[in-house]
Design a protein around this nucleic acid. Structure first.
Lengths: 146, 146
DNA sequence: TTTGAATAGTTGTATAAACAACTATATGCA
DNA sequence: TGCATATAGTTGTTTATACAACTATTCAAA
Protein backbone atom coordinates (compact mmCIF):
# COMPACT_ATOMS: atom_id res chain seq x y z
CA UNK A 1 0.00 0.00 0.00
CA UNK A 2 1.09 3.59 -0.44
CA UNK A 3 2.80 5.33 2.44
CA UNK A 4 -0.13 7.71 2.78
CA UNK A 5 -2.41 4.89 3.81
CA UNK A 6 -3.82 6.00 7.14
CA UNK A 7 -6.87 6.09 9.25
CA UNK A 8 -8.44 9.44 8.56
CA UNK A 9 -10.31 9.91 11.80
CA UNK A 10 -10.41 13.51 12.92
CA UNK A 11 -9.26 14.62 9.51
CA UNK A 12 -12.83 14.49 8.24
CA UNK A 13 -13.62 17.36 10.52
CA UNK A 14 -10.66 19.16 9.00
CA UNK A 15 -12.63 19.13 5.74
CA UNK A 16 -15.41 21.01 7.45
CA UNK A 17 -12.93 23.49 8.91
CA UNK A 18 -14.00 23.10 12.50
CA UNK A 19 -10.70 23.93 14.16
CA UNK A 20 -10.05 26.95 12.00
CA UNK A 21 -13.56 28.38 12.29
CA UNK A 22 -13.39 27.98 16.06
CA UNK A 23 -10.08 29.85 16.15
CA UNK A 24 -11.40 32.46 13.73
CA UNK A 25 -14.40 33.08 15.92
CA UNK A 26 -12.08 33.65 18.90
CA UNK A 27 -10.13 36.23 16.98
CA UNK A 28 -13.42 37.80 15.86
CA UNK A 29 -14.45 38.14 19.50
CA UNK A 30 -11.11 39.68 20.42
CA UNK A 31 -11.46 42.17 17.58
CA UNK A 32 -14.95 43.17 18.70
CA UNK A 33 -13.84 43.51 22.31
CA UNK A 34 -11.00 45.74 21.18
CA UNK A 35 -13.52 47.92 19.35
CA UNK A 36 -12.26 46.90 15.91
CA UNK A 37 -15.41 46.53 13.88
CA UNK A 38 -14.29 44.34 11.02
CA UNK A 39 -15.23 40.77 10.19
CA UNK A 40 -12.70 37.97 10.22
CA UNK A 41 -13.14 37.69 6.45
CA UNK A 42 -12.25 41.34 6.03
CA UNK A 43 -9.24 40.78 8.28
CA UNK A 44 -8.05 37.97 6.01
CA UNK A 45 -8.07 40.38 3.05
CA UNK A 46 -6.28 43.07 5.04
CA UNK A 47 -3.67 40.49 6.05
CA UNK A 48 -2.62 39.97 2.44
CA UNK A 49 -2.67 43.70 1.70
CA UNK A 50 -0.34 44.35 4.63
CA UNK A 51 2.12 41.93 3.06
CA UNK A 52 1.84 43.52 -0.37
CA UNK A 53 0.06 46.75 -1.20
CA UNK A 54 -1.95 47.09 -4.37
CA UNK A 55 -3.16 43.57 -5.10
CA UNK A 56 -5.70 43.03 -7.86
CA UNK A 57 -9.00 41.46 -6.91
CA UNK A 58 -7.95 38.36 -8.83
CA UNK A 59 -4.76 38.11 -6.78
CA UNK A 60 -6.86 38.43 -3.64
CA UNK A 61 -8.98 35.54 -4.91
CA UNK A 62 -5.93 33.30 -5.14
CA UNK A 63 -4.45 34.50 -1.88
CA UNK A 64 -7.61 33.94 0.13
CA UNK A 65 -9.01 30.91 -1.73
CA UNK A 66 -12.23 32.81 -2.47
CA UNK A 67 -14.05 33.19 -5.78
CA UNK A 68 -14.39 36.47 -7.65
CA UNK A 69 -17.89 37.45 -6.50
CA UNK A 70 -16.88 36.90 -2.88
CA UNK A 71 -13.93 39.26 -3.27
CA UNK A 72 -16.04 41.80 -5.16
CA UNK A 73 -18.47 41.99 -2.26
CA UNK A 74 -15.81 41.92 0.45
CA UNK A 75 -14.02 44.82 -1.25
CA UNK A 76 -17.38 46.59 -1.66
CA UNK A 77 -18.00 46.41 2.07
CA UNK A 78 -14.42 47.29 2.93
CA UNK A 79 -14.59 50.35 0.70
CA UNK A 80 -17.75 51.45 2.50
CA UNK A 81 -15.87 51.06 5.79
CA UNK A 82 -13.05 53.13 4.30
CA UNK A 83 -10.48 50.38 4.84
CA UNK A 84 -9.42 50.00 1.21
CA UNK A 85 -9.75 51.80 -2.10
CA UNK A 86 -10.08 50.42 -5.62
CA UNK A 87 -7.70 51.99 -8.14
CA UNK A 88 -8.08 51.05 -11.82
CA UNK A 89 -4.80 49.77 -13.27
CA UNK A 90 -3.20 52.05 -15.84
CA UNK A 91 -1.80 49.19 -17.89
CA UNK A 92 -4.90 47.06 -18.04
CA UNK A 93 -8.27 48.67 -17.66
CA UNK A 94 -9.89 45.38 -16.67
CA UNK A 95 -7.99 45.33 -13.41
CA UNK A 96 -8.80 47.00 -10.12
CA UNK A 97 -5.87 47.31 -7.79
CA UNK A 98 -6.90 47.32 -4.15
CA UNK A 99 -4.96 49.63 -1.85
CA UNK A 100 -5.12 50.12 1.89
CA UNK A 101 -6.33 53.42 3.22
CA UNK A 102 -4.62 55.04 6.20
CA UNK A 103 -7.30 53.50 8.33
CA UNK A 104 -6.67 50.06 6.85
CA UNK A 105 -2.93 50.36 7.44
CA UNK A 106 -3.48 51.45 10.99
CA UNK A 107 -5.17 48.16 11.90
CA UNK A 108 -2.12 46.02 11.19
CA UNK A 109 -0.22 46.29 14.44
CA UNK A 110 -3.18 46.02 16.78
CA UNK A 111 -4.92 43.14 15.06
CA UNK A 112 -1.80 41.08 14.30
CA UNK A 113 -1.08 41.19 18.00
CA UNK A 114 -4.55 39.80 18.69
CA UNK A 115 -4.05 37.14 16.00
CA UNK A 116 -0.77 36.07 17.58
CA UNK A 117 -2.47 35.89 20.94
CA UNK A 118 -5.33 33.81 19.52
CA UNK A 119 -2.98 31.34 17.85
CA UNK A 120 -0.86 31.07 20.97
CA UNK A 121 -3.91 30.22 23.06
CA UNK A 122 -5.09 27.57 20.61
CA UNK A 123 -1.61 26.03 20.40
CA UNK A 124 -0.48 26.62 23.98
CA UNK A 125 -0.14 22.92 24.83
CA UNK A 126 1.41 21.92 21.52
CA UNK A 127 5.21 21.45 21.48
CA UNK A 128 6.97 23.87 19.14
CA UNK A 129 8.50 21.04 17.10
CA UNK A 130 5.06 19.67 16.28
CA UNK A 131 3.82 23.10 15.28
CA UNK A 132 6.71 23.37 12.83
CA UNK A 133 5.81 20.02 11.32
CA UNK A 134 2.17 21.03 10.96
CA UNK A 135 3.20 24.17 9.13
CA UNK A 136 5.16 22.06 6.69
CA UNK A 137 2.16 19.85 6.08
CA UNK A 138 -0.11 22.85 5.57
CA UNK A 139 2.34 24.18 3.00
CA UNK A 140 2.32 20.89 1.11
CA UNK A 141 -1.47 20.81 1.16
CA UNK A 142 -1.61 24.33 -0.27
CA UNK A 143 0.74 23.29 -3.05
CA UNK A 144 -1.38 20.22 -3.81
CA UNK A 145 -4.45 22.40 -4.04
CA UNK A 146 -3.01 24.86 -6.56
CA UNK B 1 15.17 33.23 3.00
CA UNK B 2 14.33 31.88 6.37
CA UNK B 3 11.63 29.34 5.89
CA UNK B 4 10.57 30.60 9.27
CA UNK B 5 9.05 33.83 8.15
CA UNK B 6 7.28 32.25 5.23
CA UNK B 7 5.77 29.45 7.29
CA UNK B 8 4.50 31.83 9.93
CA UNK B 9 2.13 33.17 7.31
CA UNK B 10 0.65 29.77 6.73
CA UNK B 11 -0.57 29.60 10.30
CA UNK B 12 -2.32 32.93 10.03
CA UNK B 13 -4.11 31.62 7.00
CA UNK B 14 -5.05 28.63 9.13
CA UNK B 15 -7.13 31.09 11.15
CA UNK B 16 -9.03 31.98 8.03
CA UNK B 17 -9.49 28.32 7.18
CA UNK B 18 -8.08 28.49 3.69
CA UNK B 19 -6.79 24.93 3.45
CA UNK B 20 -9.94 23.40 4.84
CA UNK B 21 -12.31 25.49 2.75
CA UNK B 22 -10.35 24.61 -0.37
CA UNK B 23 -10.59 20.92 0.47
CA UNK B 24 -14.25 21.29 1.37
CA UNK B 25 -14.97 22.91 -1.98
CA UNK B 26 -13.31 19.96 -3.73
CA UNK B 27 -15.52 17.53 -1.90
CA UNK B 28 -18.52 19.73 -2.73
CA UNK B 29 -17.65 19.51 -6.42
CA UNK B 30 -17.28 15.73 -6.23
CA UNK B 31 -20.66 15.47 -4.53
CA UNK B 32 -22.32 17.56 -7.22
CA UNK B 33 -20.65 15.59 -10.00
CA UNK B 34 -21.89 12.38 -8.40
CA UNK B 35 -25.41 13.80 -8.40
CA UNK B 36 -25.57 14.16 -4.62
CA UNK B 37 -27.29 17.47 -4.07
CA UNK B 38 -26.28 18.34 -0.53
CA UNK B 39 -24.04 21.12 0.72
CA UNK B 40 -20.77 20.44 2.47
CA UNK B 41 -22.30 21.89 5.62
CA UNK B 42 -25.17 19.42 5.43
CA UNK B 43 -22.61 16.67 4.87
CA UNK B 44 -20.81 17.67 8.06
CA UNK B 45 -24.03 17.19 10.02
CA UNK B 46 -24.76 13.86 8.35
CA UNK B 47 -21.21 12.77 9.22
CA UNK B 48 -21.92 13.07 12.92
CA UNK B 49 -25.33 11.40 12.60
CA UNK B 50 -23.74 8.42 10.85
CA UNK B 51 -21.46 8.01 13.84
CA UNK B 52 -24.33 8.27 16.33
CA UNK B 53 -28.04 8.31 15.51
CA UNK B 54 -30.42 10.58 17.33
CA UNK B 55 -28.30 13.55 18.37
CA UNK B 56 -29.95 16.62 19.86
CA UNK B 57 -29.51 19.92 18.07
CA UNK B 58 -27.36 21.08 20.97
CA UNK B 59 -25.08 18.06 20.57
CA UNK B 60 -24.81 18.86 16.87
CA UNK B 61 -23.75 22.39 17.83
CA UNK B 62 -20.85 21.05 19.88
CA UNK B 63 -19.91 18.41 17.35
CA UNK B 64 -19.79 20.81 14.40
CA UNK B 65 -18.62 23.96 16.23
CA UNK B 66 -21.70 25.85 15.04
CA UNK B 67 -24.10 27.99 17.05
CA UNK B 68 -27.72 27.09 17.72
CA UNK B 69 -29.36 29.19 15.01
CA UNK B 70 -27.01 27.71 12.41
CA UNK B 71 -28.02 24.18 13.39
CA UNK B 72 -31.71 25.12 13.51
CA UNK B 73 -31.55 26.30 9.92
CA UNK B 74 -29.35 23.47 8.68
CA UNK B 75 -31.77 20.95 10.16
CA UNK B 76 -34.68 22.93 8.67
CA UNK B 77 -33.20 22.59 5.20
CA UNK B 78 -32.20 18.98 5.72
CA UNK B 79 -35.71 18.12 6.83
CA UNK B 80 -37.06 19.73 3.64
CA UNK B 81 -34.66 17.55 1.65
CA UNK B 82 -35.92 14.55 3.61
CA UNK B 83 -32.44 13.70 4.90
CA UNK B 84 -33.26 13.92 8.63
CA UNK B 85 -36.27 14.08 10.91
CA UNK B 86 -36.76 15.93 14.19
CA UNK B 87 -38.23 13.79 16.98
CA UNK B 88 -39.12 15.50 20.29
CA UNK B 89 -37.44 13.81 23.24
CA UNK B 90 -39.80 11.99 25.57
CA UNK B 91 -37.76 12.75 28.68
CA UNK B 92 -37.22 16.43 28.08
CA UNK B 93 -39.69 18.31 25.96
CA UNK B 94 -37.17 21.07 25.25
CA UNK B 95 -35.05 18.70 23.18
CA UNK B 96 -35.35 17.73 19.52
CA UNK B 97 -33.50 14.57 18.63
CA UNK B 98 -32.40 14.52 15.02
CA UNK B 99 -32.57 11.18 13.24
CA UNK B 100 -31.47 10.14 9.77
CA UNK B 101 -34.09 9.13 7.25
CA UNK B 102 -33.52 6.13 4.98
CA UNK B 103 -32.34 8.63 2.38
CA UNK B 104 -29.90 10.21 4.81
CA UNK B 105 -28.50 6.82 5.79
CA UNK B 106 -28.10 5.83 2.16
CA UNK B 107 -25.63 8.66 1.51
CA UNK B 108 -23.02 7.39 3.96
CA UNK B 109 -21.16 4.87 1.84
CA UNK B 110 -21.05 6.90 -1.35
CA UNK B 111 -20.06 10.21 0.15
CA UNK B 112 -17.50 8.85 2.62
CA UNK B 113 -15.77 7.27 -0.32
CA UNK B 114 -15.64 10.68 -2.01
CA UNK B 115 -14.39 12.27 1.22
CA UNK B 116 -11.60 9.69 1.47
CA UNK B 117 -10.66 10.40 -2.12
CA UNK B 118 -10.63 14.15 -1.50
CA UNK B 119 -8.42 13.86 1.58
CA UNK B 120 -6.05 11.46 -0.15
CA UNK B 121 -5.61 13.88 -3.04
CA UNK B 122 -4.92 16.80 -0.72
CA UNK B 123 -2.46 14.74 1.32
CA UNK B 124 -0.98 12.61 -1.44
CA UNK B 125 2.55 13.98 -1.04
CA UNK B 126 2.53 14.08 2.75
CA UNK B 127 4.34 11.24 4.54
CA UNK B 128 2.06 9.15 6.75
CA UNK B 129 4.09 9.92 9.87
CA UNK B 130 3.51 13.65 9.44
CA UNK B 131 -0.20 13.11 8.91
CA UNK B 132 -0.36 11.24 12.20
CA UNK B 133 1.37 14.13 13.89
CA UNK B 134 -1.07 16.65 12.45
CA UNK B 135 -3.97 14.58 13.70
CA UNK B 136 -2.48 14.70 17.19
CA UNK B 137 -2.08 18.45 16.99
CA UNK B 138 -5.62 18.91 15.69
CA UNK B 139 -6.90 16.87 18.62
CA UNK B 140 -5.00 19.03 21.09
CA UNK B 141 -6.33 22.18 19.44
CA UNK B 142 -9.89 20.86 19.70
CA UNK B 143 -9.35 20.18 23.40
CA UNK B 144 -7.93 23.67 23.92
CA UNK B 145 -11.00 25.15 22.28
CA UNK B 146 -13.57 23.33 24.43
C1' DT C 1 -44.17 25.10 46.32
C1' DT C 2 -42.66 28.93 44.16
C1' DT C 3 -39.60 31.55 41.70
C1' DG C 4 -35.27 32.63 39.46
C1' DA C 5 -31.62 30.64 36.75
C1' DA C 6 -30.16 27.48 33.30
C1' DT C 7 -30.95 24.98 29.07
C1' DA C 8 -32.95 23.89 24.23
C1' DG C 9 -34.55 25.70 20.39
C1' DT C 10 -36.45 29.58 17.09
C1' DT C 11 -36.70 34.09 14.71
C1' DG C 12 -34.73 38.67 13.02
C1' DT C 13 -30.98 40.87 10.79
C1' DA C 14 -26.57 41.52 8.52
C1' DT C 15 -22.49 39.60 6.29
C1' DA C 16 -20.39 36.07 3.57
C1' DA C 17 -20.15 32.15 0.39
C1' DA C 18 -20.63 29.40 -4.16
C1' DC C 19 -22.31 29.03 -8.70
C1' DA C 20 -24.15 30.79 -12.99
C1' DA C 21 -24.67 34.34 -16.14
C1' DC C 22 -23.38 38.64 -17.45
C1' DT C 23 -20.23 43.09 -19.24
C1' DA C 24 -15.89 45.01 -20.49
C1' DT C 25 -11.25 44.75 -21.86
C1' DA C 26 -7.16 42.41 -23.70
C1' DT C 27 -4.79 38.92 -26.46
C1' DG C 28 -3.54 35.86 -30.13
C1' DC C 29 -3.69 34.03 -34.50
C1' DA C 30 -5.31 33.79 -39.27
C1' DT D 1 -7.04 44.10 -39.24
C1' DG D 2 -10.66 41.18 -37.34
C1' DC D 3 -12.71 37.81 -34.73
C1' DA D 4 -12.58 34.07 -31.37
C1' DT D 5 -11.01 33.34 -26.88
C1' DA D 6 -9.26 34.41 -22.46
C1' DT D 7 -9.24 37.32 -18.44
C1' DA D 8 -11.07 40.75 -14.75
C1' DG D 9 -14.75 42.10 -12.50
C1' DT D 10 -20.07 42.54 -11.37
C1' DT D 11 -24.89 41.05 -10.48
C1' DG D 12 -28.61 37.56 -9.25
C1' DT D 13 -29.88 33.82 -6.40
C1' DT D 14 -29.62 30.44 -2.68
C1' DT D 15 -27.50 28.69 1.43
C1' DA D 16 -24.87 29.34 5.58
C1' DT D 17 -23.22 32.02 9.48
C1' DA D 18 -22.86 35.03 13.81
C1' DC D 19 -25.04 37.67 17.17
C1' DA D 20 -28.99 39.34 19.72
C1' DA D 21 -33.41 38.73 21.41
C1' DC D 22 -37.04 35.80 22.06
C1' DT D 23 -40.24 31.38 23.81
C1' DA D 24 -40.68 27.09 26.18
C1' DT D 25 -39.22 23.78 29.41
C1' DT D 26 -36.51 22.06 33.28
C1' DC D 27 -33.94 22.44 37.51
C1' DA D 28 -32.67 24.03 41.99
C1' DA D 29 -32.74 26.60 46.11
C1' DA D 30 -35.28 29.40 49.46
Amino acid sequence: MQNNQFKKGELYSFITGQASTAIARRLQRKLNQAGVNITIEQWSVLYHLWKKHGLSQQELCHATFRDKPSITRLVDNMEKLNLVKRVPSENDRRINLVFLTKQGQKLEEQTMQLADQTLSEALKTVPASKIELCKEVLQIVYDNLK
